[in-house]
Design a protein around this nucleic acid. Structure first.
Length: 485
DNA sequence: GGACCTTTGAAGCCC
DNA sequence: GGGCTTCAAAGGTCC
């Protein structure tokens, strides 16, 4: 078979019983889907099955009331009689294809702790005598303090105050550089006789390091400075700041700088999707991204390895670039964002694969084996394939197939589950569909090699434990025989 | 307004 | 180390 064979894309959609059959006259690449999205999750086997059995498929339906719509889409374009397998892939240049990793705010977010640890006030601005930290110990206790010794009028230093409530003040000082009230900063800049009762002086120094950073909301507990009302610093948040260490900690928690949301670098498939989505949208009448993504998933699986490797290479570059741009970033940083929403009760999303698991075991493990048999493990649900548990039934003497009447009690009890029945029915539909497809077109049979154990070693049918094993992108196909045989 | 759906891959977490 | 979970993009749909 020539490498220029045009892979046909077909989307298989289970439609509602009330939906009338789609006329066969639908011309490719139109892919029509159910007008109303069903909330029921498709079994994971559905997509894998469809993806693995799709090829020169004409529009067809199954018998009975449950229409299974199969639409053919020449998603890999065939224009002007030329097979353009690569036409879908924009090869304008790698820069175009590279995913625009979200550019984070250009100004690095510096935490308060960082600021204090790395850039002490005095180091930030050497003109400040001993930094403004030296004054800080005084302000909660003596709001009228102007930064100078009352008798000597000499600037007070942090050293001279090092014994004054230092632990609390150090913590409070670390909240934010802006926590230094303007008037306290001004104390350094005003004359010894001026004091700080006249309110903040704006832009007292052209190089004043915190002028841009100080904002009113950095004084959540209502610091009295600058408003001429000493002693009212608890008015806004009387419960938050009462001078105790606990209150300081509470403030610290509230003031913890939030890390900017750095998104994950795109993987190969995401890059492929981003690039190919406009093509699919242009070729099809699909609207829903979920349907488009199904098509893209099929296209991805049908993409030649050499083409896929390009995206893997791009993804690798993306990861390297991302690592350089965000050295300390970890995917873990983004964990919990949605989870928090879920925990807060806003999400109704069911945990993935939950329907397939019960007490940690796959409730479908026998069903998959029963439904598809050992000869068709490629059609097992993802969970069974991953667990590879069905094989143990072979060891127990299973024959690889059993109808509904051959179920054990446990299986029968499982069959009583409506949802499982539902999914089983879906799967039967898929079976019928696959049989139809297989009978009509022996799909890619020549490309699929099977091991003596019956495992498909086609790239699309590799055993799960090999699914995630990717050849090093720099190796050619000939150098990686173990991945393709 | 935000979760869901749907795909594959990467990475983190847990046992 | 295997298995599971989460997130990345996208945009229509639904609550």
């Amino acid at each position: 078979m020539s490498s220029t064979v045009v892979p046909k894309l077909t989307i298989i959609t289970k439609r509602e019983r009330s939906i009338s059959p789609i006329p066969e006259s639908i011309s490719p690449p139109q892919i029509e889907t159910s007008p109303k999205r069903t909330r029921r999750r498709h079994s994971s086997s559905a997509t894998s099955t469809s993806a693995s059995t799709i090829s020169h498929t004409n529009t067809s339906t199954t018998d009975g009331g449950d229409e299974v719509k199969i639409f053919t889409s020449s998603a890999v374009s065939e224009t002007n009689g030329q097979t353009t397998d690569d036409d879908d892939i924009d090869v304008d240049g790698i820069d175009d294809r590279l995913s625009p990793v979200v550019v984070e705010p250009t100004s690095p977010v510096k935490t308060a702790t960082d600021t204090l640890n790395s850039d002490t006030p005095s180091s930030i601005h050497p003109s400040f005598p001993n930094g403004y930290g030296g004054f800080f110990p005084y302000f909660p206790m003596f709001p009228y303090f102007n930064g100078y010794h009352p008798s000597s009028q000499m600037p007070l230093t942090s050293t001279s105050n090092s014994n004054t409530n230092q632990p609390h003040f150090d913590k409070l000082r670390s909240i934010s550089p802006g926590i230094y009230p303007p008037s306290m900063h001004m104390g350094l800049l005003t004359s010894p006789t001026r004091g700080n009762m006249g309110g903040p002086i704006l832009n007292p120094h052209p190089n004043f390091p915190y002028t841009q950073q100080w904002r009113p909301n950095l004084f959540p507990f209502g610091l009295p400075f600058g408003n001429g009302s000493p002693g009212n610093h608890n008015l806004q948040h009387p419960n938050l700041f009462d001078g105790t260490e606990r209150s300081v900690n509470a403030i610290l928690d509230n003031q913890k700088p939030r890390k900017p949301h750095i998104k994950k670098p795109l993987n190969a498939f995401m890059l492929f999707m981003k690039e190919q989505r406009p093509h699919v949208i242009a070729e099809c009448v699909l609207k829903e991204s979920s349907q488009i993504n199904k098509v893209l998933g099929q296209k991805w699986k049908q993409l030649p390895r050499s083409e896929q490797d390009k995206y893997y290479e791009m993804a690798k570059e993306e990861r390297i670039r991302h690592m350089k741009e965000h050295p300390g970033w970890s995917a873990r940083d983004n964990y919990g964002i949605r989870k928090k929403r879920t925990q807060s009760g806003l999400s109704h999303k069911k945990p993935r694969e939950k329907l397939d698991t019960e007490n940690g075991d796959c409730v479908n493990q026998k069903k998959c084996r029963a439904r598809f048999g050992l000869e068709q493990q490629g059609q097992w649900c993802k969970h069974c394939k991953r667990k590879k548990k069905c094989t143990r039934f072979t060891e127990e003497g299973g024959d690889g197939f059993s109808g509904s009447g051959n179920l054990t009690g446990a299986e029968s009890s499982l069959d009583e589950d409506d949802d499982l029945n539902d999914r089983s029915r879906d799967s039967n539909e898929e079976n019928r569909l696959n049989l139809t497809l297989t009978n009509n077109h022996n799909v890619h049979s020549s490309r699929i090699e099977r091991s003596p154990q019956g495992h498909s070693h086609h790239p699309q049918h590799r055993p799960h434990h090999l699914e995630n094993i990717r050849p090093p992108p720099h190796l050619t196909l000939l150098q990686q025989p173990q991945f393709f045989h």
